[in-house]
Design a protein around this nucleic acid. Structure first.
Length: 314
DNA sequence: AAGACCCGCAACCGCGGTTGT
DNA sequence: CACAACCGCGGTTGCGGGTCT
């Protein structure tokens, strides 16, 4: 690696802060046409006064077609909690198991909502548990991350008896993951992969005058392991492919609505893309994934108004 | 009604890893 | 091997809207 780093871009004269609809459309139009092989060069080619990183972030987190909008479902929250217990703050890894969700979104949800939710649950559970408390010094020596918080909640539970009620079912070889709640149990914090302190206590030992801890056997649901293992092989269970086309359409419709370019009530309006032939597999979209021609007269009008050029110079 | 405060979230920043020369 | 360029990730910031006083 070189010494020091050049700034990612020349920041003088670049826009910062919230993206405007015009900038969004410029970015979308450019990526539709040329893809995003080179983020650094993209803003210049697209006529955007933004740095490449900013464009990339905007596209990945908000503009790409397979983004899922709206609140997280209970099942999604459950998955986040479980995976966070296993992976820690590996937001992108966690996101790879939640189709349509971004690492940034998951990180925000965790920091603003799930963490508090778990904490309050922890308190609730603490009130109900007065016996069989583990050695507190052992607690501290065991783990010092957020994972400990989660594990603390698992005190005195038989990890096999009360597992999280999220069932992950692979519907085909590798492409689709269906998440189903097995029951309506309020199992938010019940990460079956965590360790009970009873388990830890049983791992204490002594050999040759040294006290040691055996690495305890963790009860981790096989589905979670397979998720992680597959992740290590560069595969994700959670890529929904068959639904991509409809999601793309929905996304474009919602984008037009959001930009005030179409009436949500008007079902007859065409959206930017009407390509039902299916998108290419994989997360990254490229130019071939899109039909270039915008179909909505209002969108065309808007593009014209904001002076987005139809020809680009490479 | 207005100011203070809180909170969620979009965006930025800086670092590490990877790739190219 | 050294260096530069770039991408992606995770931590952090700060704006804007909602709620409280």
């Amino acid at each position: 690696m070189g010494k020091g780093r050049a700034p990612c871009c020349d920041k003088v004269g670049l826009n910062k802060g919230t993206w405007t609809p015009e900038e969004d459309l410029r970015l979308i139009a450019h990526i539709q046409r040329y893809g995003h092989a080179n983020w650094r060069a993209l803003p210049k080619k697209a006529g955007l006064l933004r740095c490449g990183k900013s464009c990339r972030l905007r596209w990945i987190n908000y503009l790409r077609p397979d983004i899922k909008l709206g609140h997280f479902t209970e099942q999604e929250e459950e998955i986040i909690i479980k995976l966070h217990a296993l992976l820690g703050n590996k937001w992108s890894k966690i996101a790879s198991h939640l189709p349509g969700r971004t690492d940034n979104e998951i990180k925000n949800v965790w920091n603003t909502y799930l963490k508090k939710k778990l904490r309050s649950r922890e308190q609730e559970e603490g009130e109900h548990k007065t016996t069989d408390k583990p050695n507190s010094s052992l607690n501290e020596s065991y783990c010092n991350s957020d994972q400990l918080q989660l594990q603390n909640r698992e005190n005195d539970k038989d990890p096999t008896s009360d597992t999280t009620e999220v069932q992950m079912e692979r519907k085909d070889d590798k492409s689709e993951l269906e998440v189903q709640p097995k029951s309506n149990s309020s199992a938010l914090s019940r990460c079956s992969s965590s360790l009970s302190f009873a388990t830890v206590e049983n791992c204490r030992g002594e050999e040759n005058g040294y006290e040691f801890f055996k690495i305890p056997e963790m009860t981790i649901e096989p589905e979670i392991w397979s998720m992680i293992e597959e992740d290590d092989h560069g595969e994700s269970l959670a890529v929904e492919k068959n639904t991509t086309t409809n999601e793309t359409r929905d996304w474009l419709e919602s984008l037009e609505i959001e930009l005030g370019l179409c009436d949500p009530q008007d079902e007859n309006q065409e959206t930017l893309v009407r390509d039902d032939t299916g998108l290419k597999e994989g997360n990254d979209l490229c130019i071939d994934d899109f039909q270039i021609e915008p179909a909505s007269p209002l969108l065309l009008e808007y593009l014209y108004d904001v002076n987005i050029e139809c020809s680009y110079v490479d």
